[in-house]
Amino acid sequence: MNVTLHVWRQKNATSPGKMVKYEAKNISPDTSFLEMLDSVNQELIARDEDPIAFDHDCREGICGTCSLMINGLAHGPERATTTCQLHMRSFKDGDTIYIEPWRASAFPVLKDLVVDRGAFDRIIASGGYISVSTGSAPEANSVPVPKDASDLAMDAAACIACGACVAACPNASAMLFTAAKVSQLALLPQGQPERQRRVLDMVRQMDSEGFGHCTNIGECSTACPKEISMDFIAMLNREHLKATLSKK
């Protein structure tokens, strides 16, 4: 199959960018989306042009490195699928495909489709952990965790920090990402001692990174390749309210 691509090209963080048109020819429908870009890049290299830079690593949907707004949708048209697991059979011969980087001031573009998601790491560093130094842990089965709490915590913990929630949100809000970690740790008994401090610190860090706020629209959850529920945002709101009101 043949498709026409419109790709955001930007030399580096400080240069302006623009959409550039490319033709991808003779692509097998069994090709993954990134392999299609690989083949476009091989042609660019053959013409001695700079290939399109895009983030990717595991190519099996778990590392969270790949991104891309594909025809206006984060990770493209398939639900619960990262860009690296999207295949060309989701498109039709002759389609025109727009490919853009995540857009958020907290995720500055570094080159072409590559953005800096360091803000997520800083949110975790501000409190997204349980303080337990190596060696100090009690015997694992000494603290039972109800199965439903543990399962719900796992639902939240499935986040891969790809940033699709921010990219899809009309406000570029990082609430779903932050909420997933706050919720996971608030649901587990191990997370209780730091529960209040954690949510306050993480929300403060989130705001200071320049993300927008949550208008409860739900684009984040729908775009999320791991289908993290918006209910966790309600949980974050609850945690934050309780922590603020009971803070000494």
């Binding site: 349980i130 190596t134 965790v145 199965k147 543990s150 740790l185 191990q190």
Partner: peptide, 22 residues
């Protein structure tokens, strides 16, 4: 055996049985 203790304390959501144990 220490690894499991450490990871559980960190909040790793290992699969559990209905009794709450791993």
């Amino acid at each position: 055996v220490n690894i499991i203790d450490q990871c559980v304390a960190q909040g790793v959501p290992f699969a559990r049985e209905y009794g709450g144990l791993l």
